[in-house]
Design a binder for these strands. Structure first.
Lengths: 145, 145
DNA sequence: TATTGTTATACTCTATAACTATA
DNA sequence: TATAGTTATAGAGTATAACAATA
C-alpha cells in the first residue's frame, strides 16, 4: 500500500508550496469578490476578532498606515466595520467589525470551495499529519524577511 | 518519540493553510520588490518557461486580458521580456523572457528567505511526506471555483 | 462572426510626504 | 519630540466596454 516515494528536491517543494500559496490566495480573492469585497478588504475584516487600532491593522496587513484609512472608509461606508474612540489614548481609533461584517467574512471563509475540496481529499490521519508539518513551517514563514 | 497528536478541526487546518498561503505570498512580494518588481510582474515573469501569448498570460494570472498589456509594457520597457509575432496566427503576440528577465526571476525565487527557512525546519523524510500531502491537495486547489 | 490584442475609463491598492491632534 | 490617524499625490493592478486587425 505504501510505496517509497522519491524525496523531492528543495526546488520542487518550493515550487509546489508557491503554487499552492497562490492558488489558495486566488480562491480567497474569488470568494471575497462574490461578496463585493477586494482581497485586502476581506483580509482586514478577517483580522477583526476584537477592536484593533488603525496602526495595528497596518502591521497585520503589512502595508503603510496611510492605506488603512481608505480601506476602512470603504468598509465603514458599507456598514461592515465601525471606528470607535480608544478610552485610554485619544489619538487612537479602534476598528470593530459590525454583525454584518462578521457574517460576511464568515461566508467568505465558508465559500473557499477550492480550498475546502482540496482538504476533503485527505482523511483524518493525513490531515493530522499535514497540520503537524505545516505547524513546523509556520515559525519560519511568518518571520519577517 | 511519536506522541499521538489531536486531530485538528477542519476549520483549524483551513485557517493554517490560509495563514501560510498569505505569508508565502507576502514573502514572494517582498522578494520581488527588492528587484523593483510588483507581485504580478514577478508572477508573470515566473510563467515564462517559453513563449506565451498575451491571452494565455491572462488565463495564467487569472485576470482580464486588457490588464496584461500594461504589465507586459512595463516589463518590456525594463528589458525583462519582449513581444514576438506568432508565425501561425498574425493576431497573436508571444511574450518571451529575456536573459535578464530569466536571471531576475531566478534571483527572486532564491531570495524567498522566509519560505526557504521554513522548509529548512524539516528533514528529508518530513519534506517527502509534506510533498506527498501537498500533491494530493493540488488537484482540488487548482480547480477553478 | 469570433478571437487577439489594445485603448479608454473608473476604481482600488500602494508608498511617500506633509499635516493635525494628541501624548 | 514622538506617535496615531489623515490627506494629497502618483504609480500600478483591476474589470468593463469599445475598437482594429485577423481568423
Amino acid at each position: 500500500m505504501t510505496a517509497t516515494p522519491q524525496p523531492p528536491t528543495k526546488a520542487q517543494l518550493l515550487e509546489l508550496v508557491a503554487a499552492l500559496g497562490t492558488a489558495q490566495w486566488q480562491d480567497f480573492a474569488a470568494a471575497a469578490a462574490r461578496h463585493g469585497l477586494t482581497s485586502v478588504q476581506a483580509k482586514l475584516l478577517a483580522q477583526l476578532k476584537g477592536p484593533v487600532p488603525m496602526r495595528g491593522l497596518a502591521t497585520l496587513l503589512v502595508c503603510d498606515a496611510s492605506n488603512v484609512t481608505g480601506i476602512v472608509d470603504r468598509l465603514e461606508s458599507r456598514g461592515l466595520v465601525r471606528r470607535e474612540p480608544d478610552p485610554r489614548d485619544r489619538r487612537v481609533k479602534n476598528v470593530v467589525a459590525t454583525d454584518e461584517g462578521l457574517e460576511t467574512i464568515q461566508r467568505v471563509r465558508a465559500e473557499m470551495q477550492a480550498t475546502h475540496s482540496a482538504l476533503d481529499a485527505l482523511d483524518e490521519e493525513e490531515r493530522t499529519a499535514l497540520y503537524g508539518l505545516l505547524e513546523r513551517l509556520r515559525p519560519g514563514l511568518e518571520r519577517r524577511g
